[in-house]
Amino acid sequence: MSRRIVCLRHGQTLWNVERRFQGHSDIPLDETGVAQAARAASLLASLRPTMIVSSDLQRANDTALALARIVGLDVAVDKDFRERGGGQWEGLTREQIAARWPEEFVAWEAPDGEPVGEVAVRVAAAMRRWAARLDDDGLLVVASHGAALRLGICELLGLPEQLWPALGGLSNCSWSVLQEGRKGWRLLEHNAGTLPEPVISDDRPEV
């Protein structure tokens, strides 16, 4: 056995439905999101997680708490699992962003926002830090956000940045599974759990 990480994206929010960039804005789960979190929790409980950690934003933390209540674990909170900061884009729809910042929209780089490379390093470092606390056969569940998780996974796997778009986005309350091997971390599953749900996220439009 070896250590594993389940990367769980939070449930749906109203801003997801409205396709607004959430970033660091602390938006709660909507009714659908609460139901999604409960369903994901019932499935992930069978994996017998040994540790749960979440972003400090309530949409991720409430998703984590749904699982914690079933498996009897506490939820640790780490702000390094926050979503990518959206700067001036937070609260705006994709149509509004494209109209006001056409060049930045194509590059998906928000004015005053967080660069993708910094997000990838931040999230991957947090994954490594928490995974290091696991027993050899432990399972860590990280409840976080779509762009943050995808970028962190790419960095953890050692993928060069030009290949990051090859990994698709995460739907609400879907998850990816990583396992530590002799040569580092590998991806066992990606965007599992609720397919074929659409990906409505702060992540790049093409992923």
Results as ranks from 00 to 15, higher is better:
20 R>P: 05
16 N>M: 09
29 L>M: 06
83 E>Y: 05
50 T>N: 01
70 I>E: 11
17 V>F: 02
166 A>M: 15
84 R>C: 13
77 V>W: 01
35 A>V: 04
139 L>V: 12
53 V>N: 04
86 G>F: 12
62 D>M: 09
190 H>F: 05
185 W>F: 10
194 T>W: 05
70 I>F: 01
171 S>N: 02
58 Q>C: 15
83 E>Q: 10
159 L>Y: 11
76 A>V: 00
149 L>T: 14
67 L>N: 01
173 C>G: 10
73 L>Y: 02
90 E>I: 12
142 V>Y: 10
51 M>D: 15
41 A>M: 01
97 I>Q: 05
161 E>Q: 14
46 S>F: 02
7 C>V: 15
105 F>H: 12
94 R>F: 15
195 L>K: 11
13 T>W: 10
139 L>R: 11
6 V>E: 08
64 A>P: 14
158 G>V: 07
5 I>T: 03
185 W>K: 09
88 Q>M: 13
54 S>L: 03
200 I>E: 04
194 T>K: 00
182 R>Q: 14
157 L>V: 11
186 R>L: 11
75 V>E: 02
21 F>G: 00
204 R>I: 14
100 R>K: 14
11 G>D: 06
190 H>G: 03
111 P>I: 06
18 E>V: 07
192 A>T: 06
138 G>W: 05
121 V>E: 13
41 A>Q: 00
55 S>D: 04
47 L>D: 08
73 L>A: 02
189 E>Y: 12
31 E>C: 03
14 L>W: 06
183 K>M: 10
155 E>T: 00
82 R>T: 05
75 V>P: 06
168 G>E: 13
104 E>F: 00
102 P>A: 12
169 G>L: 09
205 P>V: 06
174 S>F: 02
100 R>T: 15
160 P>Y: 05
154 C>N: 12
201 S>I: 00
90 E>G: 08
112 D>H: 13
4 R>W: 02
90 E>S: 10
